[in-house]
């Protein structure tokens, strides 16, 4: 039998203790052990960005990390960040601009975009394109996503004033 490890971590603000095998990826752990299916898996190789989550406040690829490495960490997923309102401005702008079609890339894209706006609250289109270039979208051609992030940034600035 494979050895089992016990881990305790905080996911979307809730502390949870689970038993996992060493090879369980954080993405599979979130999706299958916790039922948080908003985090998607598109390549399991760290390329597509569909599995992007926040890990101790930084965006990471959940497919590249093992669940055991998350012991003691704080993980925030699209579900939790929706509840806390962290993504509201982006979600509204994505909705208005139809910056999603199938929506499979969207949770990762939202987290990547929010990370970008934290680092650079006033990006131009080129900076948005560069900032999201680790997240694949096969449906939209990205134009509407760039529009949405630019609009969210603008609305964020106005809200600050």
């Amino acid at each position: 039998m494979e050895p089992i490890h016990e881990i305790t971590l905080t996911v979307d603000g809730e502390q949870t203790t689970r038993r996992v095998t060493a090879r369980r990826s954080l993405a599979d752990f979130l999706r299958e052990d916790l039922g948080l299916t908003g985090t998607h898996v598109g390549c399991e190789q760290g390329v597509c960005g569909a599995c992007t989550v926040r890990f101790n406040g930084e965006q990471i690829r959940a497919c590249l990390m093992f669940a055991v490495q998350a012991d003691g960490a704080r993980v925030d997923t699209v579900e939790g960040l929706t509840e806390t309102g962290d993504l509201t401005r982006l979600q509204e702008a994505f909705h208005r601009n139809n910056a999603l079609q199938c929506g499979f890339c969207t949770p990762g894209m939202l987290i990547a975009a929010s990370d970008l706006l934290i680092r650079n609250p006033d990006p131009d289109r080129e900076e948005i394109r560069a900032g999201l270039s680790g997240n694949y979208c096969r449906c939209t051609g990205y134009h509407a996503i760039v529009d949405a992030v630019a609009e969210a940034a603008q609305n964020g600035k106005e809200a600050e004033q």
Binding site: L36, T37, G38, T82, F94, H95, N98, G103, F104, L110
Partner: peptide, 11 residues
């Protein structure tokens, strides 16, 4: 699209 934006799609 709202459901998908909230990570509540059912794929």
């Amino acid at each position: 699209a709202r459901r998908l934006l909230a990570g509540r799609g059912q794929y």
